[in-house]
Amino acid sequence: METLAASLLDSVIRLAVVWIGIFAPFYGLMGYVERKFSADLQARIGPSLVGPRGMFQGVADLIKLLAKRPLTTHHLPDTLQWLVGFLVLYSSAALLPLGSYFLLFDTELSLLLPLVFVAIASLSQLWLALSLGRVESWIGGIRMAAQSLVALFPAMLSILCVGVYVGSFQWKAIAEIQGFSFHHWTLFSSPFLFLAGIVFYLSGVAMFHLPPMDAAVGSQEMSGGVYRGIAGRALVFTRIFRFYGLFMWCVFAVGAFGGAWNLPEFSSDGVGSSSQTSLSFLEAILVIVKAFVLMVFLFWQSRVSPRLRVDHVTNFSWRVLVPLSLLSLLGQTLWGMWGNG
């Protein structure tokens, strides 16, 4: 019983570190980086008022949003949606591949679980839309769910490529087969896995309605779609929820294709248990840095591409991502059979 309590406490502490120590500051940082980076690309100044070089603009915006509307208008569908959303959120934090220490939960199907979360999240959005009782909300919800589910197929197929290569869907096995340097990454171990990595990343962009494929949750949908009437505090939760999707997907992409949490070889030789803890933090930092690069790349692309319409995104998924992922799965299977795997 004592060991159970101790392990439970340990899990709670680790989750708290992931949420408060890693995710929350990273969210603040990325909010600033996105705004300043987009401003630089578009010859604007960007946030400049609060703090040095506008660094605390996000904090000011957060306070303003929280003060805007009291949380008195609770309806059952809203509550249900947040509940399902947060359940997905908290449960997926347990299997984020942020390092060997912060990975609380690792099964034979770890790599496939994010897809289940996406399916649940899109289902919850569909429920919310259907319960709002307005035609425009129904159609908005169906659009969002359609885009998520269409992108689920190529993501699943590209994950199967990793499974074919590694022989397992377990994070530890996937991390072991990779290394710190580029040529040990799954992404660069075969041309088909490279293709699969790109497809995986792009399908995540479509799945979480991230820019430039965010027409389904754009401002016109804010006034007529699923998120109609969401303002003030509820908007804060919506933003955090959406950013978490991006964060989770980038971390998963790093884990599956980008060398996972592997540090350089010499660092893990002959260290004590106290150094092990600091090493696990180093692992998490490495994963975060890689995810940061992926996110900045996405911000860059979203500033130079026009926002795609929902039917364009679904077309793109069916006609480009699905064939390419099928090709990479077939190719990777043959590549492995001929002794390269």
Partner: peptide, 24 residues
């Protein structure tokens, strides 16, 4: 996509007189 991505890079670093911030 690649070409349009490269167009904005000089603006990011403010290279050249016409690529500085234009807003006030």
């Amino acid at each position: 996509l690649l070409e349009s991505s490269l167009v904005v890079v000089p603006y990011l670093f403010g290279w050249g007189e016409h690529r500085k911030e234009v807003t006030e």
